[in-house]
């Protein structure tokens, strides 16, 4: 199959490359663009390790072809660090509350939590658990992940109040 020219915005930058139509977005990100934050955990869209933010949606990039993302706006975990290189609030709260162990699910988990808090800035514990139910973690038992996301929500809201 001939390769296609694929172009999209990734973490605020225009990126492009050539790929066979059948190339999955996760492989295009990881192999062609060397963006290795999103991981591959199951390949059947169950685990969420490959989650990226595409056009304001949390998307499992193992179940999207790169060509389908042509023209899209994509954010990965690499785009959630503050511009000055310090940890973003979610990243910091995951560290603060021990919301990760092996780190393999973490990029997808934080990317998903980022979108969740955009849509629901004041979630309950139940809403957080439901909202991250597309992401599997084998290490933490989720309890500290939930704690970290709730803490991040609180901090983001107090930042917002302070700014107002």
């Amino acid at each position: 199959m001939s390769k296609m020219h694929i172009k999209f915005r990734l973490n605020g930058q225009e990126v492009e490359g050539l790929a066979e139509p059948r190339m999955l977005l996760i492989h295009f990100l990881r192999e062609n663009l060397k963006v290795t934050g999103p991981h591959i955990g199951c390949e059947t869209s169950h685990c969420g390790a490959c989650t990226v933010d595409m056009g304001g949606k949390s998307v499992k990039s193992c179940t999207v072809f790169a060509c389908q993302a042509d023209g899209a706006e994509i954010t990965t975990i690499e785009g959630l660090t503050n511009p000055d290189g310090t940890l973003g609030v979610l990243q910091e709260m995951f560290r603060e509350h021990h919301g990760l162990q092996c780190g393999f699910c973490t990029p997808g988990m934080i990317t998903r939590a980022h979108r969740l808090l955009q849509e629901n800035p004041t979630p309950t514990e139940e809403e957080v658990r439901f909202g991250i139910s597309g992401n599997l973690c084998r290490c933490t038992g989720y309890q500290n992940i939930v704690k970290a996301i709730l803490a991040a929500a609180e901090q983001l809201n107090s930042h917002k109040e302070a700014a107002e």
Binding site: S45, G48, K57, V59, V64, R112, F130, G134
Partner: peptide, 9 residues
């Protein structure tokens, strides 16, 4: 149905 990511797509 499914999970949040799958419902977005």
């Amino acid at each position: 149905i499914a999970d949040p990511q799958v419902r977005y797509m």
